[in-house]
Design a protein around this nucleic acid. Sequence first.
DNA 1: ACGAGAGTAGACAGACCTGTCTGGTATCGT
DNA 2: ACGATACCAGACAGGTCTGTCTACTCTCGT
Lengths: 194, 194
Amino acid sequence: MSAASLPTARKPSARERLLTAADELFYAEGIHTVGIDRIIERAGVAKASLYSTFGSKDELVRAYLEGRHEIRRTRMLKGLERYEDPRDRVLGVFEVLDELAGTPGFRGCAFYNANAEGTPGGPALEVADATRAWMRGLFVELARDAGVKDPAAFAAQMVVLYDGASVGAKMDRPSMSPKVARGMAEILLAAATA
Amino acid sequence: MSAASLPTARKPSARERLLTAADELFYAEGIHTVGIDRIIERAGVAKASLYSTFGSKDELVRAYLEGRHEIRRTRMLKGLERYEDPRDRVLGVFEVLDELAGTPGFRGCAFYNANAEGTPGGPALEVADATRAWMRGLFVELARDAGVKDPAAFAAQMVVLYDGASVGAKMDRPSMSPKVARGMAEILLAAATA
DNA sequence: ACGAGAGTAGACAGACCTGTCTGGTATCGT
DNA sequence: ACGATACCAGACAGGTCTGTCTACTCTCGT
């Protein structure tokens, strides 16, 4: 298919295939619901390889969530590149979210979903903390560039909007909540820079 | 104990005991994680009684979620009784949420959690739709009483804030997000009634 | 040429889960 | 007094889950 991007057109390693399979299945159907057998079948990998690579299902889950964190980061940063005006970049976060929520496989925030499935104290909590901290930091940075007076307080507001928009996009399909959140962000941004 | 509220101080029926046990366990640990055996053990009820009463675990889950819906309704309405001014009643929703999020067992929105656990098309979706519709309707009503120009649009904003505050309260313990949401609602309410 | 490392296929153990069934007990209306 | 109804206790079947283990194959560096 499309395996001619680099001179080294090696086929993906077992680890990579496992991760993509886990990503697709865990995100689409939930972590408890998806068993090891389904993952190795989709990845075309032997069970022993999974356990020699990751050690346990929990560690595979952690790797899956860390991968989601990385994907979210790069996708958001890339999506924001098209905006130049600092204020547009703040509001752009909600536009990127809106696009994301419109894609077919969207099922809400992977970290929130993972934490909703019990497993308290598991890997889900740590990775969720990390990704939420990154998100808040991004908003702080964007707010500072946009001349907001109290960037930390404003970022806290934006995080609430982002979470709410994400939940709405999952629960009320089709949903306008990312657009609604963008509108609110606009008002709040005006209030915070006045 | 405290069973002397009414002349008929009968002990709770098997159905009631099952529902309270299911409520506590499902909400605290998730639906997949909690097995039938744990529920009947906590309820002090035979397995046959569970299946003759509810028919299946799925139906027990539906009853659990419907109970949560009822609890949420009455608790919110009761919490709002103390406010008289229509604007205070709008903002009061977030204060009630703040109190709720502060209670020890708080683990976020039961409906979102249930939907995050896979089971697509199960009972979780329908009940979640119902409770979200009720919530939006409540905001529409409160907004109209407060003299908001476009109550539907304003209610959509409030739902985003409510969802975001609820998620934040779950994920960032301790969290200020309900208070942050209240602050945002105040600004938006002023903007919507101007 | 050959040995090491990585991977494959699949059986297996042990635990847990939902749902059914049998059989016994208590309570209540008539 | 008695029959119906509700309930309890627990064994059981059939399935699924994670994780381990054995035995075979392929590929690559030296």
